[in-house]
Design a binder for these strands. Structure first.
Length: 635
DNA sequence: TCGCACTCAGAT
DNA sequence: ATCTGAGTGCGA
């Protein structure tokens, strides 16, 4: 089998393809990057040398034999940039339709050969860690735009190697010491794994059918409510097939539109949207539960000043004890004692039984380092280990207090751990000294860690649901459309934080934020790296200008000297777009050939397209995707 | 920034 | 049927 992708020898001289350390006479050293390559693992055409000095496949650009020569504007172009330039050339070619462009790009990615690769190979070509040659696990991106597993990367730099495995660029110290997970890439990888099966599983089974299908895809506003906007919105369609009293994570089988379940780290624009995906059903209340059953989920939104958030554990305050007279639906002022009744009792029951409680964090929680910057995010399940009463910060009245400790099989969104939670010792809570009504679980928890399997699971059967499932319309066509929306949703993950559109030429900062290269460069255009200073006619030492990341406080001035495109991520984005186009065109064929369904013609004007001229329509689709992305991110 | 009116869903 | 609720945008 001929290698589709060629690899050099690693830092120890071991060939990364055959894992053997060849003697020096069996290696060739590249004249450009000075990297040794194992001769017998090179393709014959890569061995040829047109000039005197041998160049490796990375440096010679042999991977893109059909690419039109394009001169890059930047002085130093890495091998990745050759591809970028070639793609740029294709994109700029006005004679090509979008479909043709996609085909060319695909050909380019698959090494210009015939399209005889199987899915597995394609996936690998799209995105892989150059150390382990797998899809990156907990991916991190170097400033030179290359992706690695966190573990591989740490192992690599742990050996004292401070150059990129792929391009031999220097890895800055701060990146080596404190790598950040590239969350957008995490979704990319998840998506790459999911879309394949979801296409086959589009005709997913739907268990129950209620009038949920009559609901709009987005939360709507009544005529009267439009005056006050979303505040008065009715809820939109529920996309998951779990009942309102479902405990624990939402698995893939209850997510017929995407077939992936609600993943830790997923986020939504507001509580309405969060509700539509089942993470937390009440659209105002912070606790979802029933006093006789238990609590299924809570929201951390900063509404209670007694709350204390430590990420993996937090202290939560019960509800009630506040005057909601008149039309007020919320009120910060405590005016009576809270008691373990209603929702507070539901939480206590979840504590007693050791049920998993889903937790969403809202951007409204300003004091917590773990709160998302915008929207509402699902952070996984926690258990309530104990609860008690105490006089709250406001001084005069008692509040119910709960200790939540994380117990999810998926790692928290903020952690760079590879695995989910392990049982951990309970934190020390000073306020327990003054607590009254202390309640600690005595029986064994329903949801617990199975040492043998190394994961959290139901040890006792979960409570039986007493509620109906808000199921989706089984009509195939609608499911296909929403499956497409599922893709749209994930494309939103690849929004540039500056232009709010889908990333083009994405660059990943050392703090793991993604921007279009052009946007980031424009942001800092005209700002020089150093600032001249003078005082009283005396010239002081030039001070380095701090160039802060548009998303956080990280200084990007070093990174900005030569930001590199994350080529692999770009490929994923391109492929996503392509898949959307394919899904769209297959939908068209299904429509034109079928037509047997008596449809309630509620298709929006924007979606109705004539059968002819697919290219225009495709462009339109991509535009709507970009618009959707900007709608989501912008505020 | 604040207070306010407004809406809907869910518990009881 | 009544009540509660960690939402929401507007106008002062």
């Amino acid at each position: 089998m001929a290698p589709e992708v060629q690899f050099p020898c690693d830092g120890d001289g071991v060939c990364m393809r055959c894992k053997v350390k060849p003697p020096s006479e069996e290696t060739l050293t590249c004249g450009t990057c000075v990297t040794p390559w194992h001769v017998s693992c090179l393709l014959p055409e890569s061995l040829a040398s047109s000039t005197g000095e041998w160049q490796c496949p990375d440096c010679s650009g042999d991977v893109v034999p059909s690419a039109a020569p394009v001169t890059g504007h930047a002085g130093v172009e890495s091998s990745g940039s050759v591809l970028v330039a070639a793609i740029r050339a294709i994109q700029a070619d006005v004679t090509l339709t979008e479909a043709k462009k996609a085909k060319r790009r695909q050909k380019l990615m698959s090494g210009g050969g015939d399209d005889g690769l199987d899915e597995e190979d394609k996936k690998k070509l799209e995105i892989f860690c150059s150390i382990c040659i797998q899809l990156p696990e907990r991916p991190i991106t170097t400033p030179c735009g290359h992706n690695f597993c966190l573990r591989c990367f740490e192992k690599w730099v742990g050996q004292g190697k401070l150059t990129c495995m792929t391009c031999r660029s220097k890895i800055p110290k701060n990146v080596a010491q404190n790598p950040r997970i590239n969350l957008a890439l995490v979704s990319a990888i998840r998506l790459a794994n999911v879309t394949k099966c979801s296409v086959e599983a589009t005709a997913a089974k739907v268990h129950h059918i209620i009038r949920n299908q009559d609901r709009p895809e987005k939360a709507f506003t009544t005529d009267r409510a439009k005056k006050t906007g979303k505040a008065n919105a009715a809820s939109g369609r529920i996309y998951v097939t779990i009942p309102g009293d479902h405990f624990g994570p939402i698995p893939a089988e209850n997510d017929p539109t995407r077939n992936q379940g609600v993943l830790v780290g997923e986020s939504w624009e507001d509580r309405q949207e969060c509700r539509q995906w089942g993470a937390h059903f009440p659209h105002i209340a912070g606790i979802a539960g029933q006093s006789a059953v238990g609590a299924q989920s809570v929201a951390l939104s900063g509404g209670y000043e007694d709350d204390e958030d430590h990420g993996e554990w937090f202290l939560y305050t019960g509800s009630g004890g506040r005057d909601l007279g008149g039309n007020k639906r919320t009120n910060k002022i405590q005016s009576s004692d809270q008691s373990f009744a209603k929702m507070n009792e539901a939480l206590r029951l979840s504590c007693k039984m050791g049920y998993p409680v889903r937790v969403v964090r809202s951007h409204k929680e300003k004091r917590s380092a773990y709160a998302p910057k915008e929207g509402v995010r699902y952070d996984g399940v926690y258990r309530i280990e104990k609860c008690w009463s105490n006089v709250g910060i406001q001084g005069s009245y008692k509040v119910c207090r709960y200790l939540f400790v994380r117990c999810d099989n998926e790692p928290a969104p903020w952690t760079s751990d590879e695995h989910g939670d392990r049982p951990r010792p309970l934190p020390n809570i000073p306020e327990l000294k003054k607590a009254t009504d202390l309640f600690v679980r005595k029986e064994s928890p329903s949801w617990d860690f199975d040492e043998a399997e190394g994961r959290w699971k139901w040890m006792k059967s979960p409570p039986v649901s007493r509620k109906a499932v808000a199921a989706l319309d089984p009509e195939e066509r609608k499911i296909i459309r929403k499956a497409k929306n599922g893709n749209n949703r994930l494309l939103k993950e690849f929004g540039c934080q500056i232009c709010k559109k889908v990333l083009s030429l994405p660059v990943t900062t050392p703090c793991a934020h993604n921007f279009c290269k052009a946007c980031l460069e424009a942001k800092f255009a005209g700002i020089s790296q150093v600032r001249e200073r003078s005082k009283g006619g005396r010239t002081l030492r030039a001070k380095k200008n701090i160039m802060t990341c548009p998303c956080c406080t990280t200084d990007l001035s070093d990174f900005l000297q030569n930001p590199q495109v994350n080529r692999e991520m770009m490929e994923v984005i391109e492929n996503l777009k392509k898949k959307e186009e394919e899904a769209e065109s297959s939908k068209d064929t299904a429509e034109s050939s079928g037509g047997n369904n008596a449809e309630s013609e509620e298709e929006e004007g924007t979606q109705t397209v004539s059968e002819v001229e697919p290219p225009t329509k495709r462009i339109k689709l991509v535009d709507t995707v970009a618009a959707a992305a900007s709608d989501c991110v912008g505020k």
